[in-house]
Design a protein around this nucleic acid. Structure first.
Length: 390
DNA sequence: GCTCTACCATCAGACGTG
DNA sequence: GCACGTCC
DNA sequence: ACATGATGGTAGAG
């Protein structure tokens, strides 16, 4: 679930921390990619409805392969544009997330039942919809993805815990330019740059600069984390009756969740005197302090300790794996590899293209309030060590 | 009337060919 | 350039 | 053996 409604909140309260950019802007840059999120999208989107059953891409043993097709193409797309992707996989989820995970598991089981029902009734559209919700990633599928990406020459990192946290660490350490994910809690983990929208070619890529955001919100990092917890995160229940808008006001006024809890008690006590229902309901186990810990000092591998290198694809073994084991058509692989054949995987000197590029556009998102309030633009983000060598 | 929250259902890829 | 079937 | 997420519409409360 990430941080509930954070995107909407930022569009309203910090409209100037966004830029929209075209793909060529990222030539020569290194980008940390949230692998599991991408895999789910590929797996879901490569399902289709047959006449009486749902059709999924699989190898001859029945293991699903939609995520491989997607990751293969996406990685080629990156490399073709001179972008160096680091694929980051989730490790073990934190204990605090187990409540949320149990909730999702239950929803998936319900979806499975609904799928069967829809199939019986011959409602293939509904069957497809429900079947998409049952999607899970087995360890084999994950291992397949890692193997393929490594054979393609890309660095793969298996985070000790949350992938978003690991990406944020890499970005702060200067190992990557940005974190690419749809998951907004990368910001809560303090990634300096967040990129959204690599999933669709239809729209440009949104870039969110953490420093601009925090300045515009006029919050400290700790206050921003508290705000995210109040909006609703994966780690604990939220206070009923407080959403993003109220949370922001209260954080400004009372500085921290502790301060807000004090205020909440007062308000509720006052209302009780007048025989009114409580305005806010604090959950019986409001684990905001533990949640804070997970965001501020997450379990990650230190960026300094990681060596990221890009190699030329291991064509022989890649083809062997994808064709013999996973049933790929040889022509597709050949076509794909042709696209990146001339690229220099280690250096990507094509960074120069960026200096001559004229297609990079900087546009602010549509937002009537933002337009009305201000048409000033914030300046370029930091270059994130443009000359750094990894 | 307006703002905000809670809750519901829905959405989420890329290639190659014609 | 677009719609559509297919990718495995 | 498993662990992805956001968004849009709307009703109802304050």
């Amino acid at each position: 679930m990430g941080i509930h409604q954070l995107m909407q909140f930022l569009k309203e309260k910090a409209p100037n921390c966004f830029r929209t950019l075209m793909l060529d802007y990222f030539a020569g840059r290194t980008i940390g990619c949230d692998a599991s999120m991408a895999m789910y999208q590929f797996l879901i989107q490569t399902q289709s409805a047959g006449l009486t059953q749902i059709i999924e891409l699989t190898d001859k043993e029945g293991n699903r392969t939609g995520h491989l097709v997607g990751l293969f193409n996406r990685t080629l797309q990156f490399l073709e544009n001179g972008i160096k992707p680091v694929w980051v996989f989730d490790g073990k989820p934190p204990l605090l997330k187990s409540g949320e995970l149990a909730r999702r598991k239950k929803l998936k089981e319900e979806a499975k039942v609904k799928t069967e029902l829809a199939l019986e009734q011959g409602d293939m559209q509904q069957a497809l919809l429900q079947n998409q919700r049952t999607t899970t990633i087995s360890s084999i599928m994950k291992e397949d993805a890692i193997k393929m990406l490594q054979l393609m020459g890309c660095p793969v990192i298996i985070a000790p815990c949350e992938a978003e946290a690991q990406c944020a660490e890499l970005c702060r350490a200067g190992k990557i330019y940005a974190t690419a994910t749809e998951d907004m809690d990368a910001l809560t983990f303090r990634t300096p740059v967040l990129l959204r929208g690599f999933n669709t070619k239809k729209e440009p890529i949104y870039e969110i600069i953490y420093d601009d955001m925090i300045k515009e919100l006029e919050l400290t990092y700790e206050q921003f984390v508290d705000l995210c917890i109040l909006c609703g995160c994966d780690y604990t229940e939220k206070i009923e009756g407080i959403g993003p808008g109220t949370a922001y006001k209260l954080i400004k006024e009372y500085k921290s969740i502790e301060g807000i809890l004090e205020h909440v008690q007062k308000v509720n006590a006052e209302r009780e005197k007048n025989n009114q229902n409580p305005k806010y309901t604090v959950p019986s186990k409001f684990l905001y302090q533990d949640s804070r810990e997970l965001f501020i000092t997450p379990l990650v591998q230190k960026g300094d300790e990681l060596q990221l290198t890009w190699n030329k694809p291991d064509v022989d073994n890649l083809k062997k794996f994808l064709i013999e084991e996973k049933g790929f058509a040889e022509s597709r692989i050949d076509n794909g590899l042709k696209r990146i054949a001339k690229k220099d995987p280690a250096g990507f000197q094509s960074r120069l293209e960026n200096f001559f590029g004229k297609t990079t556009k900087i546009i602010h998102p549509n937002n009537s309030k933002a337009k009305a309030k201000s048409n000033k633009k914030t300046e370029q983000p930091q270059k994130s060590g443009g000359k750094k060598k990894i």
